[in-house]
Design a protein around this nucleic acid. Sequence first.
DNA 1: CTATTTTGATTGTAAAAAACTATTGATTTG
DNA 2: CAAATCAATAGTTTTTTACAATCAAAATAG
Lengths: 310, 310
Amino acid sequence: MTITQLYYVLAVAENKNFTLAAEKCFVTQPTLSMQIQKLEEELGIQIFDRTKKPIGLTDVGSKIVTQAKNIVNEANRIKDIVDQQKGFIGGDFRIGIIPTIMPTLLPMFLNTFIKKYPKINLIVEELNTVDIISKLKNGHLDCAIAATPLDEEKLKEIVLYYEPFVAYIPDNSQNNSKKELEVSDLDVEKILLLQDGHCFRNSVLNLCKTNNFMGEHHFQLESGSFETLIKLSDEGLGTTLLPYLHTLDLNEKNKAKLRQFANPKPSREVSLIFSKNELKIHIIDALKNTIQGVVRGAIAFSDVEIVSPK
Amino acid sequence: MTITQLYYVLAVAENKNFTLAAEKCFVTQPTLSMQIQKLEEELGIQIFDRTKKPIGLTDVGSKIVTQAKNIVNEANRIKDIVDQQKGFIGGDFRIGIIPTIMPTLLPMFLNTFIKKYPKINLIVEELNTVDIISKLKNGHLDCAIAATPLDEEKLKEIVLYYEPFVAYIPDNSQNNSKKELEVSDLDVEKILLLQDGHCFRNSVLNLCKTNNFMGEHHFQLESGSFETLIKLSDEGLGTTLLPYLHTLDLNEKNKAKLRQFANPKPSREVSLIFSKNELKIHIIDALKNTIQGVVRGAIAFSDVEIVSPK
DNA sequence: CTATTTTGATTGTAAAAAACTATTGATTTG
DNA sequence: CAAATCAATAGTTTTTTACAATCAAAATAG
């Protein structure tokens, strides 16, 4: 059994076609067919069910494919080890970002980053926090950006920034007297929130601890965008909170409904997260510096009461 | 990079000698030398420091060796997958047993087992519970026998038997009047216990929950045998509890100091433990049946109040 | 229902890789 | 300093891998 044979198996499993798989592997079809036959012979089992069209996997075959992925992944880490040793900044780099951070943060740093490190092949994926955690652990992601703390044993978090929330109040006239909003002015039971990315720091508003926070509403937003939230709010369903960076590109009409909080502002902690035994530390470090560079300009840190997360 | 090359690297790392490593790999020394050179060239780094005597690893080298072990382990699992498919009962099978179970249980089933399954190459290791858990998770063990429950997410437990404890009372005359001992008769603060294997079932005696149980003594037995415990007890340091199977081969003098408990007897749950994605299920099943077969004769289950573990 | 296309297996051959034997060269040991 | 140890090198042989060309079976089109 060779690693090459496993690559061939994975290619066929993925493309369900020997000819196409061979192309992807940059070899001719007979070469690939022979190698797979050899492997099947060595193991004494059939990996592929060639009677089906398109080609299918046998029962053992699918287990072998799963394991082959593990082996190939582990094998690829050898290159990462060497790259790290050489201080090489390049190669594939997979990053996961939660939906509520993606649209505002990614455009801010992507251009700077890929220009500064042209050898890195950045692969960005939008994922929710649960998927991010599992993919970081099994090596499908090199790092991620999400609301923290996650309190995961095997993951390391580096805080990128604290993003204050701004209240979005559809009927903003009634409290117009006060300039800055106090947290105590909010009726937390009536607030509209997304599931993801609303863990507040410093217990200013302690909402994330109740895992199934519903408030007075009879629905829960499992996922979705802040656009949805704004529209629901406009429909009279209540007040909502928007992360500061999201408020920057609202239209004027909506901006009028925003109300800043007084200090200490409720805010979310946004961090770079990676596995403790991640090898591409140099790239993570480069990414961290790039993001912190661009964010420093956008968020005035003095606005937020910084308290080191536990 | 090939799996063969990684095997060669591991052999050299282990033997610190190219010639010896080559023998272990059943190839000539130049073959092995060449392959390792080729790998080093492909990666563009030195794995071995050949200036040292005996040969040493470079910094990257040791990282690569660690990863190579992972890859080779994962690769070996392919064979396990195929074996499982074929229903093959054989090959290497690594089992860990905690010290307080090993001496009594292993002799009871080992002979029966290896005669019944001559194709299995059983490798038994005495390990404490902590090591067992980590080695099951990283694939260094195929299964283990320990006191349960462990409450480990990724591990599965199959209860083999409940082993009642018997009190060992050095000064057995004073309570001689009563025939069976009640748990309440014991002063739990004065009891001598081993760290391992003393998690009592059914909260009859609730000792394992206090992680650093010291009682009135000024010492803790981190490990050791029940022989030590008996001698300490004889020295007047207190009463102790012995697992039922251990009491069977005490000398007459010591047996006189034993006192059975009344029902419900305090007992320990002994289970077969394995990773949830362990492939050698057939072997584990064979082992379970063998052990339960021999234990059924030794422990009268009616003696123990069986309550299903939570 | 036959012609055509698609797709994987087969065959024969060339190139590449891996293994072996024999030998060298450097270092350590007696 | 001679002998022994041990990895590297050189030169061959064997094995493996890849390729081009072709075949055979199945699916699709006319």
